[in-house]
Nucleic acid binder design. Structure first.
Lengths: 199, 199
DNA sequence: TCTTTGATAGCACAGTTGTGCTACTTTGCG
DNA sequence: CGCAAAGTAGCACAACTGTGCTATCAAAGA
C-alpha cells in the first residue's frame, strides 16, 4: 500500500469519517467498525492511527475547535471595519451553513458525552475558555471603536455575550427552520447594538 | 407481590433510576440491565412498564419538562411583585442546585441523542417551544409593569432572552465552578435591566 | 376457594461492541 | 535485490446489548 505522505492528513481523513457517522447515527453509532466502514478501510488500519476508540473521538473533538479557530483567524486576517469584523468573527462560531452545522452537531454530541468522559471534558473546557476569551476580545474591540457605552460590567457582559452566542448556536442547531440564519444574525446585531447608548 | 397503587408513580420511580444512571454513566450507559439494577428490580419488571428502551428514555425526557413546568406554576401561584416573580420563573429553568442540575444533565444528554432519534426530537421541540413561549410571556409581563422601553422588536427580544437563558443553562452546567449560581443570576438581572431605558 | 389479572423474574437468542493479536501487503532505503 | 518498516486486513475473544418469551408469584374478584 502507498505510504501516506502526511500522517496528520490521514488522521484527519479518518476523523472526517467519524464526523459523518456521528451526524448520521449519533455518537452511539460511532463504533470502530462503522467508522472503518465509512472511511472505506479496516478495523486494523483504524487502530493503527488511533490506539483506542476514545482517542478517535477526542481527535474528532479537537478538530471542531481547530476548524473554528482557523476560520476566525482567517476573518481577522481579512481585515475590514471593526463592527463588521466583530459580527463576522462571532458568526463563525454559529451553525449557519452546512459545514458549520456539521461541526455543531458533533460538538453537541461530544459535549453531552463529556459529562461522563473526563478527557473529553478537558477538551471541551479548553474550547469553552477560548470562546469566552473571544467574547472578551470582541467587547474590547467594540469599546476601542467607541461602540460600547460607559458603566458596563465587562466581566458580566462577557458572560452575557457568551451565553447569547452559545444559546443561539444551540437553537440554530435544533430548530433550523423556525430560526433561520438571517434571524440569528438579527438577534446578534440587536445584542451588539444594545451595548451602546440607547436613544 | 404487592400490587402497585399508582401505575404512574411506579413509572416515575423507574424513570428516576434512568436519571441516576444517565448522570453516572451517560446515555450510553443507560442499558435495560443497568437501569433495572439501579432500580433494584429485574429486566422483566422494567419491560412490563416500558415495552422498549426508547419508551423508557422518552418518558425520562418528558419528566424533565414536566418538573420544570410544575415548578414554574408553583412560582406563579406563589405570587409576589412582578419583577421578582419574573426572575424566579426564569431561574427555575436553570441548573442552579443539585436537583435542577440533574435535570440539566439529563436534558443535555437526551437533547444530543435527539439529533438521531425522531421521537425524542419531537419531545425536545415541544419543550423548546414551551420555553420560548415562556420568554414571550415574561417580556409581556415586564411590558405591562412598565419595565420595558418602547421600540423594541418583541419577537427578536424573545429570541434573545431565550438564547441567554439556554446559554446560561449550558454554561452553568459545564462550568459550575467558574460560573456559580450568583453569577448566573447577576447576568440574568443585567439582561432584564437592559430592557428598560438606560440612563 | 378457585380463577383471573397485575407484576416480577430471568433465561435464550442473535447481534454488536472494543480491543488484542497475527498475518499479510506495499513501500522506501541500502 | 533484499530487508526493515509502515500500513492494512480481519479473525478471536469475552463482554455486553435489546427484546422475545416463559415461568412464577401475589393479590383481587367471584
Amino acid at each position: 500500500m502507498p505510504r501516506v505522505v502526511d500522517a496528520e492528513q490521514r488522521r484527519r481523513e479518518l476523523a472526517g469519517a467519524v464526523w459523518r457517522v456521528i451526524r448520521r447515527d449519533g455518537v452511539a453509532g460511532a463504533s470502530v467498525r462503522s467508522v472503518a466502514r465509512e472511511a472505506g478501510t479496516s478495523m486494523g488500519a483504524l487502530r493503527h492511527w488511533f490506539p483506542t476508540q476514545d482517542a478517535l473521538l477526542h481527535f474528532a473533538m479537537t478538530l471542531v475547535s481547530e476548524n473554528v479557530r482557523a476560520r476566525i483567524e482567517g476573518v481577522v486576517r481579512g481585515g475590514g471595519p471593526p463592527a463588521a469584523q466583530v459580527l463576522a468573527v462571532l458568526e463563525e462560531t454559529l451553525p449557519l451553513d452546512e459545514e458549520r452545522r456539521a461541526e455543531g452537531e458533533v460538538w453537541l454530541a461530544l459535549t453531552a458525552r463529556a459529562l461522563v468522559d473526563d478527557e473529553l471534558a478537558a477538551l471541551r473546557d479548553r474550547a469553552a475558555a477560548e470562546l469566552r476569551q473571544l467574547c472578551a476580545l470582541v467587547l474590547d474591540a467594540l469599546a476601542d471603536a467607541g461602540a460600547v457605552r460607559d458603566g458596563l460590567d465587562t466581566e458580566l457582559e462577557t458572560e452575557r455575550l457568551y451565553a447569547v452566542l452559545d444559546g443561539l448556536a444551540l437553537h440554530a442547531l435544533i430548530r433550523p427552520t423556525t430560526l433561520p440564519a438571517a434571524r440569528v444574525r438579527a438577534v446578534l446585531e440587536v445584542h451588539l447594538a444594545g451595548l451602546r447608548d440607547t436613544r
